[in-house]
């Protein structure tokens, strides 16, 4: 339950701090789970229960174009050194934009029902079309 502050307690300026304390280290180099986000940070707000379907990532088809990373409205595509790594299922709301924009001929991201496991989804992934012989 969020604590509701009085008018004399709030931080003037409609401001909220992103981190709980002053940042001394290079945040970009700090693993996400070790960053000291403040309680107000939207990183602390999980929206996984908003999903009806979830995106599943298949590394075999991915060309690392970064479209999904650019278009995801909730920064839930984790990419490092221009390589797509995984989906952040705590913050993914299941909107399906990433799968929509994924340009590979057979999608590298597919939206599947929330209850389906990653293994069974990957096992049932559509096959790449073989190049037809001339």
């Amino acid at each position: 339950m969020e604590k509701l502050l009085g008018w004399d307690e709030i931080l003037p300026g409609a401001c909220l701090f992103a981190f709980g304390e002053e940042i001394k280290e290079n945040v970009a180099q700090t693993p996400r789970d070790s960053r000291k986000y403040s309680d107000n940070n939207s990183h602390q707000a999980h929206v996984s229960d908003w999903r009806v379907t979830k995106p599943v990532f298949n590394v075999d088809h991915c060309i690392n174009c970064q479209f999904c990373w650019v278009y995801c409205p909730d920064m839930s595509i984790i990419s490092k050194d221009k390589k797509m790594i995984e989906v952040d299922y705590d913050h993914c709301k299941g909107c399906g934009i990433c799968a929509e924009v994924c340009p590979t001929p057979v999608k590298s991201l597919m939206m599947v029902e929330e209850f389906k496991s990653e293994e069974e989804t990957l096992a049932a992934w559509p096959e790449k079309k073989k190049k037809e012989a001339k």
């Binding site: 009085g6 008018w7 004399d8």
Partner: peptide, 10 residues
């Protein structure tokens, strides 16, 4: 006065 405001009376 402020009506329905949290915090000390304004």
């Amino acid at each position: 006065q402020m009506l329905g405001l949290r915090g000390p009376k304004c």
